[in-house]
């Protein structure tokens, strides 16, 4: 591997990183000040960088309106799982320390353009935004809060899928979260799903794909099986736009692709139609 491939691998500890950011999509060097805009969208290619859950809340919710629920629900270790690189409990603790969050989703009540909602935002930094018992519990409690208060539920997904370290219990969270969504459906409470980069595996195959309205950010990776697994299975090249938001829109699985800068306005607009009453 030649030295010229290195720039993409520059780490945060490199002094250069303080001045320049490298866009993960177009690999362009962008002045950090420009990249650190409120949206974290590449000014060159429009790539939507991954956000922390708190950054997302700040973008979407009316200022000061967000109040966290379920902060007490934290990571559990039902299998007492350990692999070659150590115990899951330690990895989970490291994720808590790194992110300052208790699980891979932050849930709470908030207002969007004055409209009261229950909102959940996944954080990919937390073990790849994986779905496990704590995550599933927070989502179910959010759905139950939406049902009780008769307020719309909005979930922003960013996840590699089910968390292997909690094994079958993670798989069961797909059923658990969908049970919560099912109740909203019966009670005619709006549920809007926003799929951000990436939304794959067990999260795409549960609550993320069954919104009344499914929205995605541009170019977000969205799919069920991993690209490599599919290539190995069918032994053929996949189209370049495979499993992108644009591909899903074309195939009928999304209502809209919405630029981050327009997301809040779009949600507010949809909510005005969705909330009967």
């Amino acid at each position: 591997m030649g030295w010229f491939t290195k720039p993409a691998e520059i780490t945060a500890s490199t002094p250069t990183e303080a001045i320049w950011a490298v866009c993960p999509a177009c690999k362009a060097y962008v002045p950090r000040a420009e990249w650190n805009n409120d949206l974290r969208v590449c000014p060159r290619c429009d790539y939507h960088d991954r956000l922390t859950c708190r950054q997302r809340v700040a973008q979407i919710c009316d200022s000061g309106s967000f109040a966290e629920i379920s902060a007490a629900v934290s990571v559990r270790d039902p299998l007492k799982f350990a692999d070659a690189s150590g115990a899951y409990a330690d990895k989970a603790q490291a994720a808590v320390k790194k992110t300052g969050e208790g699980e891979a989703i932050l849930t709470g009540t908030a207002r969007i353009d004055g409209i009261p909602v229950v909102i959940g935002v996944m954080d990919f930094r937390f073990l790849g935004g994986s779905l496990a018992s704590g995550t599933g519990e927070r989502i179910l409690l959010a759905a139950e809060a939406a049902l009780k208060q008769r307020q719309p539920l909005i979930l922003f997904s960013a996840s590699g899928g089910a968390r292997m370290h909690e094994g079958i219990i993670s798989l069961m969270q797909m059923a658990k979260t969908c049970a919560g969504i099912s109740r909203l459906q019966q009670a005619r409470i709006p549920y809007i799903s926003v799929l951000t980069d990436p939304t794959t595996g067990g999260v795409s195959a549960s609550y993320a794909m069954v919104g009344d309205i499914n929205i995605a950010e541009p170019k977000a990776l969205i799919g069920f099986a991993g690209r490599r697994v599919i290539e190995q299975t069918i032994k053929q090249q996949l189209p370049e736009d495979f499993q992108t938001a644009e591909y899903l829109l074309e195939h009928g699985f999304l209502d809209h692709i919405v630029h981050r800068g327009a997301m809040k306005t779009f949600l507010a607009k949809v909510l005005r139609y969705a909330s009967h009453g």
Binding site: A205, V210, G223, A225
Partner: peptide
């Protein structure tokens, strides 16, 4: 497992499973 194929993705493997989970619950 569910089939991991190009056509399966194009026709919405994730959506099909997600829909079933939601409907079975009720």
């Amino acid at each position: 497992g569910a089939y991991p194929g190009l056509d399966a993705e194009a026709r919405g493997q994730a959506e099909a499973i997600a829909r079933n989970l939601t409907e079975m619950a009720g």
